[in-house]
Amino acid sequence: MNDDFDKLKRDYQAVEAPPHLATRVRAEVADRPDRIRAWIPAAVTMSLAIMLAIPFLAQQTGTQPPAQSQTQTQSAPPTKPSLSALASYTPERLSVPTPNLTQLRSVTVPRMPPRPQLNTQRPQTSLDTEHENLQEKDHANA
């Protein structure tokens, strides 16, 4: 049985690649240039530049705070905010007056139009019309 396996193996190993395969491979390799990957270093450089610029920009905006906030934090030390400074903080009142409830109550509303009166007569029913028809027939017969 081992001879049979050896024969099978020899049969397998007798198969050879077609001639000129190496030439075909060489020609195909030459035809397929490598993908252009020049965008990768450019993208890496751009992202690094953005990452470095973000803290710098944040620092720039932090050194120039608005004037209103400067007046609010005058009592507190500029570098280390404390809770006591926060407790003494009084927010500015808004210049717009608060709405008055009494004014709301005194608002006059125009009167509603008079309610339409319902017809006092009894609504007509099918029995009434039938009765009228009978009366007309009697009159005709008479």
Binding site: L8, R10, D11, Y12, A14, V15
Partner: peptide
């Protein structure tokens, strides 16, 4: 095609 390959 090799006959051997077919057998295998």
């Amino acid at each position: 095609e090799h006959e051997a390959a077919q057998r295998v």
